[in-house]
Simulated assay, not measured.
Amino acid sequence: MDTTTDVNWLNPAEAGAWRSYIEVQSDLVNAIERDLGEHGLTLGDYQVLVYLSEANDSAMRMCDLADALQLSPSGLTRRLDGLVAGGFVKREGSAADRRVMMGVLTGTGRELLEQTAPHHVESVRRRIFDHLDEGQVAVLQSIFDAVATGLAADAAASA
């Protein structure tokens, strides 16, 4: 490691926090993915169903859905292919603008989400919140809000 450069190295507490994060984050996502897999979904699939369920008329413009999921248009197409094939989501043209494609949650998709949501919430609770007290939950939210604010500022500065 080159220590001759002018780098603001992480102090021991910061390094420990960073290592804890990187060592647990993929294990956590994998555990939640395994739990959703019992219902035939990935975490990404579940996110699609949630975003569509919360949208007006259970429909979103494809470009807005891609932005919400932080996917490219082709990434969204790949993500939706399985949900469309399963009858959980459909693609349809917008009634307001023929140039716009919409992602629409079907009745079958809503049923799947309603069946899966209690199991997903139980998984998240068991894997995260059962290990935290009320103060830690508040700190966790504060931490991720601060990180999100910093990321948004960086994105705005580079745009």
Score class of each variant (00 low, 15 high):
K90D: 11
K90W: 10
R91C: 07
R91M: 11
R91G: 11
R91Q: 11
E92T: 09
G93S: 13
G93P: 01
S94T: 04
A95H: 04
A95T: 02
A96D: 00
A96N: 00
D97P: 06
D97L: 12
R98Y: 15
R99P: 13
V100Y: 03
V100H: 02
V100E: 07
M101Y: 10
M101P: 01
M102P: 01
G103C: 02
V104E: 11
L105R: 00
L105Q: 00
L105W: 01
T106C: 01
T106R: 00
T106K: 02
G107F: 08
G109N: 06
R110Y: 11
R110T: 09
R110A: 13
L113E: 08
L113Q: 07
E114D: 13
E114Q: 07
E114W: 05
Q115M: 11
Q115N: 12
T116Q: 09
T116L: 11
T116G: 10
A117S: 14
A117E: 13
P118R: 03
P118K: 02
P118I: 05
H119E: 08
H119R: 09
V121K: 12
V121T: 12
V121Y: 15
V121F: 14
E122P: 00
S123M: 04
R125I: 13
R125M: 14
R125Y: 14
R125N: 13
R126Q: 11
R127W: 13
R127D: 11
R127G: 10
I128E: 12
F129V: 01
D130Q: 07
D130F: 10
H131W: 14
H131Y: 15
L132S: 09
E134C: 00
V137A: 10
V137R: 11
V137W: 05
V137N: 06
V137H: 07
V139E: 06
Q141N: 14
Q141V: 15
Q141A: 15
Q141M: 14
I143R: 06
I143G: 00
F144V: 00
D145Q: 03
D145G: 01
D145I: 03
D145K: 04
D145T: 05
A146I: 06
V147G: 02
T149N: 10
T149F: 07
G150M: 02
L151M: 13
A153T: 06
A153R: 08
A153H: 12
A153W: 08
A155L: 06
A156D: 15
